[in-house]
Computed example of a mutant assay.
Amino acid sequence: MNDAAPDLQLLGALALELAPGTGAARDALDQDGAGALAARMAHDLAGFAAEASALQLVTVGAHYDVVELLRPGWPLHRELDQLAARAPGDAGGRIIAFGAHDGTLPGALTPQTEYAGGPLRLVPFVLGGDAEVASRVGDAFERDLMERGMAGAATALLAQEAFGLRVEHARYLTLHDLAAMMALQYEHAGLAPLWPVLEAAMLEPDAEEWLEQGPEPIVHYTDREARIALFTPQAWRERYHPESAHDSVRDCARLERAFEMYQARQRQFSALLMAHGVPVTFVHCDTDMDSHAQLA
């Protein structure tokens, strides 16, 4: 996929779109349940590209929020890959499914409760094996899954019954598909300006990205963290409203409300970045002039 995960060949997820108001009875399956779901997933994936059956499928009997998958270095998929590497035997064509034992999943696979309850839940998978086969299957999946990646009816029903969910649609996506879908959703939610920062953190963790757009907070992604400029009210005025030096009392009240909205936007950006696993540091800037230097 990229240099963030050099040992992983094809990363994706079974996406379960839930009916409104749906709550999950279970967020993790036992070993038998995980194995049964994995077998159905393997059958579906081979239907999209026959050579997928020659690759090793690794998955887990659990479902997660989007922000748990879309993080720098793809930690959930990496954890699956590392756990599977301990399993003996030939990797070609086998299915490895991790389930819960006494209610506990292995390694770092436990879903985070603070992100439970969303309308889209994801069962991650890794396909690996012969590099040439994986490359061909990966190309086919990147090209076709978004358009024709609906899961089989038996798979959707099994997931619904096993997890205790009300599944409206079940489909397969690569992580690139998932990222593209989230970029569109964030755009609809008014969060498009932050997406290039998130995208850089996920796809090129060692890259550098600036957000210096219009009225938005200043964000600098560098050294694998996001640095957000924290202005004093006066410094904020200098940057965003330099014409306000001689404002009336009424205008000052309006600016105070605008500054409060700006601070709320900072908190929103910070929460979203941290949910995606990007560390956030607030950098105090006493003047607009030194903000760029202090965030560097």
Rank of each mutant, 00 (worst) to 15 (best):
R148M: 13
F141H: 01
A192R: 14
S244C: 09
A154D: 15
D32C: 07
M181H: 09
L175D: 05
D286V: 11
G21N: 15
Y172K: 03
P72N: 14
R148C: 12
G23E: 15
A264R: 13
H292W: 09
G73P: 11
L127Y: 05
D223R: 10
R227T: 06
L178G: 01
Y172S: 04
D65M: 02
D247K: 03
D177N: 13
I95R: 14
R121N: 03
L295K: 01
E51Q: 15
L211W: 05
L178C: 01
R254P: 04
D90G: 08
L14T: 11
A38M: 01
V283G: 09
A50N: 07
Q112Y: 07
E260P: 08
A85T: 05
A4Q: 12
A170L: 03
R148T: 14
A134L: 02
F163P: 00
L37V: 15
T59A: 04
L29I: 08
P193M: 04
P88V: 12
V137F: 00
W74Q: 08
L105F: 07
G61F: 02
W236D: 05
A39V: 11
V219H: 03
L273I: 12
P124M: 03
D139H: 09
V219P: 00
P20N: 10
D286T: 13
Y240L: 05
D251F: 14
L120Y: 02
A54E: 13
E260D: 15
